[in-house]
Design a protein around this nucleic acid. Structure first.
Lengths: 132, 132
DNA sequence: CCTTGACCTTCCAGTGGGTGGAACCCCTAT
DNA sequence: ATAGGGGTTCCACCCACTGGAAGGTCAAGG
């Protein structure tokens, strides 16, 4: 299977698939003309990668998940631990963004937003505000 | 004022301040010995940058905000528009992360998390799941 | 047989926003 | 004289790609 076909089927840009080969996440065979030749097994790995990346796992986490995926004796607890860690991470990011939003909204609410130059947002940026 | 002093006062690493010079956000004078020499005006810019960055504005947004900051005739509406745009952006990110979290949590909830190899998280990653 | 166009190849550079480190200079105190 | 704690430059690296140039390959149509 050529890279274009596999790209479409795995829902990944060809560039990304080549990049994944660079970092040794997939190792396709080569045809006589130098074209990459993907098997169904490669396809599964790529689909797995696409899905795991879209769930927010980093490349290194994907590498780990792939090795667990291929280890028929893995404990599901190992996989669950990674997922739970990721959830905690996402929660941290959400609360960080929420407080950012609150701060920004407070600033915007105090700004007239008209043609006059006086602007409390700028004033806050200058003086350093009180929330980090 | 030397870079170390200004770094401490603006709450930014010296490396970052040099980087900001590289991308022309600050242009400190130089002493005869080659050391950077910061004025209070430079300090204000750096503090402004520190604060704006910590509020999630990109470097380019900071550049724009700085130019508005220095334009005594700017309309506060211009600044407000940037802040409101940023709020929308943050809201998008939050909802994206929330749906990610939900998906991940559903997966984790269905996983026994024990010593057995059977794992619904991996199964989902393989089969592609139903939420993007 | 030739051309066209879609596909494939490699390699190099850039993104954003810094961070780490090496190798070297400068200033002050002892 | 030397030790330390500044400062300087430059180059490489992080992450996860993405864009583009320059060229090779293949199938279809004239």
């Amino acid at each position: 299977m050529n890279i274009g076909t596999v790209a479409e089927r795995a829902n990944l840009p060809a560039k990304t698939i080549r990049f994944y080969e660079d970092i040794e996440l997939v190792k396709p065979a080569r045809l006589k003309n130098g074209y990459r030749d993907y098997t169904e097994v490669d396809m599964h790995r790529l689909r797995f990668l696409q899905r795991a990346r879209s769930l927010g796992f980093t490349i290194e986490e994907c590498r780990l998940l792939l090795s667990l995926y291929e280890d028929k004796n893995r404990a599901s607890a190992d996989v669950k631990a990674i997922a739970l860690g990721k959830i905690k991470e996402i929660e941290r990011k959400i609360s960080e963004l929420k407080s950012l939003k609150t701060t920004l909204k407070d600033l915007a609410d105090h700004c007239h937003g008209d043609h006059r130059p006086n602007c409390p947002i700028i004033d806050d940026l200058v003086s350093g505000g009180n929330s980090k």
